[in-house]
Each structure stands twice: as structure tokens, then as C-alpha cells.
């Protein structure tokens, strides 16, 4: 009896806390006047510099990165959308150029494992709790 009471208290705590914080968020307003350089940066951080060791295109100054940045800038002025530019580069250079691995057959394990382990924890926990 006592136990259950306490548990509901803590549960109430957490859920109240979570729900209360959510409506406080303002929706992020889209800033329409983004400068060209900012768009270049946003695309360039998503791409890996294939010549360097562990740097993205934005951070690096290698020939590869400079040519990619020039390409992005050119495409942007032509009016190509960001995702199209990234797609084109993805087509050309393969998965390796994307800083974040796409969700596809060879990365399912990578993406699912963390959430699987987390849910496994929940299952074990509630199983023990019911006992």
C-alpha cells in the first residue's frame, strides 16, 4: 500500500514536470533573411571532408573542402535547395561524405541499438518492479 503510494507520487512528479515544460517552448520562428554564408555553413557542417582526418567541410581548409564550399555557393546562388545540394553530393561521393549516417539497410543496427538498449532497461525495470 505504502509502496504504491510513493511510486505514484514520483510518477506524478516526473510527468507533471515533463508536461509543464513543453508548452513553454516557443515555436522556432523562421528567419527568412539568412545570409548566403550562413546557408553555406549549414550545408558544409553536414559534409565530411574526405581528404582530412575527422573534420567536416566547414571546419577544414583543404582543397577538397574549398572546392565543395565553392560548389555549394554556386548552387545556392542558382537557387538550388539545401537538401538537393546535399543529395547531389551524396550521389557523387557516397555515404561517407554525410557526417550523419543515413538510416538504411547497413546502418539499421547502428540506429536501433541505442534505443533497443534503453527500452530493454525499461522492460527489465518494470519486470522487476512487478515482482
Amino acid at each position: 500500500m505504502h509502496k504504491k503510494n510513493n511510486f505514484s507520487k514520483i510518477f506524478f512528479f516526473i510527468s507533471f514536470f515533463l508536461f509543464f515544460s513543453a508548452p513553454l517552448a516557443h515555436s522556432a520562428s523562421e528567419n527568412n533573411e539568412r545570409s548566403l554564408s550562413k546557408s553555406i555553413m549549414e550545408i558544409a557542417v553536414e559534409l565530411k571532408c574526405l581528404e582530412c582526418e575527422g573534420q567536416n567541410v566547414y571546419e577544414s581548409n583543404s582543397n577538397f573542402s574549398q572546392s565543395i564550399k565553392a560548389y555549394i555557393s554556386e548552387e545556392l546562388t542558382k537557387g538550388t535547395g539545401s537538401s538537393d545540394i546535399i543529395n547531389d553530393l551524396h550521389q557523387k561521393y557516397g555515404d561517407e561524405i554525410l557526417m550523419t549516417p543515413p538510416v538504411q539497410a547497413n546502418t539499421y543496427v547502428l540506429w536501433i541499438l541505442p534505443f533497443f538498449l534503453l527500452s530493454l532497461g525499461f522492460v527489465i525495470f518494470f519486470f522487476k518492479l512487478r515482482k
Partner: peptide, 18 residues
């Protein structure tokens, strides 16, 4: 033989819930 990159964004996404 497939080459992929696992960058900061991946780690941020999977570590955030934890």
C-alpha cells in the same frame, strides 16, 4: 566494404535521451 561516417550529430541524437 561500405564506407560511412558517424559524426557528432549521431552521438548527440543517441546520447540525448540518456
Amino acid at each position: 566494404g561500405d564506407r560511412i561516417t558517424v559524426g557528432p550529430k549521431y552521438f548527440n541524437i543517441v546520447i540525448a535521451p540518456l
